[in-house]
Design a protein around this nucleic acid. Structure first.
Lengths: 80, 80
DNA sequence: ATGTGACTAATAGTCCGTT
DNA sequence: AAACGGACTATTAGTCACA
């Protein structure tokens, strides 16, 4: 799972949890609607300033969007 | 403090904590030395794939580089 | 060992659509 | 509502010579 795909899935997860359409999120984050679509599908490689707008719009952390989902410490041991 | 500046300071903080030169980090993250320099000074607006390489090289989380530093819950109250 | 300006190739990001 | 495409402009990726 690459970083773009992971980011896309998390954006979608958080967006739908709020009951927002892609257009609604686009409006709140001041990002074009078609770009949100591309982000969620993992076909875009956004800059940190764009992700910052998403973090603020979604009211989440960078970790929520980009770090692997929360695990117990024991699960982290096998990472490279 | 914008996202680029914050990112730059955290990269520098984690790099120096390991006793690495910019060249050493550049080698480990497979990023050009002068680009690391620009990142630390906050003059670059990198994409998530570039930050991913730094996260792996530094052995840190996205949160370490981009979320505001860990604070007590009480400190979070005055945020926008 | 690092800061900086300049440069080209690549791509981020927008805007117009159709399905 | 959302996936997807084409075309377009602005900006980044990546590198270099030099201070």
């Amino acid at each position: 799972m690459d970083v773009q795909r992971r980011l896309g899935l998390q954006i979608q997860r958080l967006r739908t949890a709020k009951g927002w359409s892609q257009e609604e999120l686009a409006y709140r984050a001041d990002i074009h609607r078609t770009y949100i679509s591309g982000l969620e599908r993992g076909t875009r490689n956004p800059t940190v300033t764009v992700v910052e707008r998403l973090v603020k719009a979604l009211g989440c952390t960078w970790s929520d969007l980009l770090d692997r989902t929360t695990r117990r410490a024991a699960d982290r041991k096998s990472e490279d």
